[in-house]
């Protein structure tokens, strides 16, 4: 399942997209500890599969929360410098902005 957490508002589209089909085989979940803001958590999804997800408390303010990792304006051109994107060997995590 591809889960898109985030939002679109007047100022833009801010989603963290997670391909959770990789999460079942992943043993260590390095993404969880990679995020300096603690955005991610492991859950059991509606189909009883383990899945990385964005904590509810962050879903409506990703643009603000992630701003500390995105000081440069054109960070989207080199997304690998984001710790969460880098942590997942399967590249299951993507930012849309």
């Amino acid at each position: 399942m591809i889960a898109n957490y985030g939002y679109t508002d007047g100022s833009g589209e801010y989603y963290i997209s997670i391909n959770t089909s990789f999460c079942a085989e992943c043993q260590t979940h390095p993404c969880i500890s990679a995020c300096p803001q603690g955005v991610f958590e492991m859950i059991t999804d509606d189909y009883d599969e383990p899945a990385c997800s964005v904590k509810d408390s962050f879903r409506k303010k990703l643009n603000y929360t992630c701003s500390t990792c995105k000081p440069a304006r054109k960070s989207s051109e080199s997304p690998l410098f984001l710790p969460c994107v880098q942590a997942c060997v399967n590249r299951a995590i993507k930012h849309t902005w």
Partner: peptide, 15 residues
């Protein structure tokens, strides 16, 4: 009817 891709926007009242 199993979800394969989703997006939910509950931040902004538009839409």
């Amino acid at each position: 009817g199993k979800v394969t891709n989703f997006l939910m926007n509950d931040k902004c009242a538009a839409g």
